[in-house]
């Protein structure tokens, strides 16, 4: 999921300087799991903003905030609340925030969260980054463990000299990706594969902004 972290409250307050009334929008997907866009998080934000004299015209948790059209339709029921607000404060990821920018052309839209990374929830509300969406998956060659993401240097061909008893020289909290890859490929009997040199990555696959359109399949006769 997309991991988001709540901005420091003071930063949000600074952002809302001159804004008297806000509509709060959360998201029932990732941001709810992260606790940054859940009904509880919205209620807390409402109370916090009201305590400093802001008016909260309404709150709503979108089903999927990054789904522009769906969210637009959902929010029709809240039209008056949104119209009454000087700004929309979006408590989701950057994609959800920008859905609102697209839907409400003339309305100020602000982010309450920082969007951190694509994360695996490995324990309750504990997220680990395993994939950096590089656009060219190579983990068939690396035992299913991504060195692009989990090695701080993104090394594609084995451990550097900083491999340290299974950990990384960059931080004692980081496991050495290549020690893990080796151990796993040994278990799965794929060590031979690890001898292949992986070529430089194609960073053109990572160029932003990206667009992806799923083409409709032609109906078979």
């Amino acid at each position: 999921m997309i991991v988001s972290k709540a901005k420091e409250r003071q930063d949000v307050i600074n952002m809302l300087e001159g804004v008297k009334s806000v509509f709060l929008l959360g998201c029932s997907e990732c941001a709810t799991l992260c606790g940054t866009g859940s009904p509880e998080a919205l209620a807390e934000m409402k109370e916090s903003l009201e305590s400093i004299g802001k008016k909260v015209t309404g709150t709503f948790v979108a089903k999927t905030g990054c789904q522009v059209l769906g969210t637009k339709v959902e929010l029709k029921a809240n039209k008056e609340e949104v119209d009454a607000a000087d700004a929309i404060l979006v408590m989701s990821c950057g994609a959800g925030t920008q859905s609102m920018v697209e839907v409400f052309k003339d309305k100020k839209v602000y982010p309450a969260n920082d969007t951190a990374f694509l994360g695996n929830m490995t324990r309750f509300q504990h997220f680990d980054e395993r994939c950096s969406m590089c656009g060219e998956c190579i983990i068939d060659k690396t035992g299913g463990i991504c060195p692009v993401t989990t090695c701080p240097k993104g090394i594609l061909n084995g451990p550097c000299g900083g491999t340290n008893n299974g950990f990384c020289e960059v931080s004692p909290d980081i496991e050495c990706a290549w020690a893990k890859i080796y151990a796993r490929m040994e278990r799965t009997g794929e060590l031979e594969k690890m001898r292949q040199i992986i070529p430089p990555k194609d960073y053109s696959k990572k160029l932003s902004p990206k667009v992806f359109v799923i083409e409709k399949k032609k109906e078979e006769k």
């Binding site: 061909n157 084995g158 451990p159 000299g161 491999t163 340290n164 008893n165 299974g166 290549w178 020690a179 890859i181 080796y182 060590l191 690890m194 001898r195």
Partner: peptide
């Protein structure tokens, strides 16, 4: 003297 040494040797 890398530990583990095997991945180092592959590299």
């Amino acid at each position: 003297e890398a530990n583990p040494i095997e991945p180092q040797m592959l590299k």
